[in-house]
């Protein structure tokens, strides 16, 4: 299967999405990410029982924080798919990429760029 997905998506592998903490998500934005999505296993299929469910809650809190700080709640998202769903993976990547393109660059990246200029 050779599936196309946007090449500028930077993948950070973790053993389980339960490992993804709230401050990891926020730090990605601090470093200028335009959007972040967490791709966990299907709900009910977590090898560590609740990892992906915790991840979803953290993504929800990250949304609230991003909204309150003016970054925007839609820049972070949680998706669930299995390791066997390659087509779905490519689809999610394109879908999220599309969403972020519509939102435009993150205000944090713009501020960084302005400072650097």
């Amino acid at each position: 299967m050779r599936l196309q997905y946007p090449t500028h998506i930077h993948i950070i592998k973790v053993p389980c999405t339960g490992r993804v903490d709230l401050f990891h998500l926020l730090q990605a934005f601090e470093q200028g990410a335009d959007g972040v999505f967490v791709a966990g296993c299907l709900e009910g299929d977590c090898h560590y029982m609740h990892g992906n469910l915790f991840a979803r809650k953290r993504v929800e809190r990250a949304k609230d924080i991003l909204a309150a700080t003016g970054v925007g709640r839609d820049r972070v998202e949680m998706y669930n798919l299995s390791a066997g769903q390659g087509t779905r993976w490519a689809e999610i990547c394109r879908e999220f990429d599309e969403r972020i393109k519509n939102l435009g660059p993150s205000p944090i990246r713009l501020a960084h760029d302005k400072k650097a200029a």
Partner: peptide, 19 residues
């Protein structure tokens, strides 16, 4: 510490986007 890091990060995001 976790909550301190989250709050610190959130404040930096706020100040940065507000210029």
């Amino acid at each position: 510490m976790k909550e301190a890091k989250v709050l610190g990060s959130a404040l930096r995001l706020y100040y940065t986007q507000a210029g």
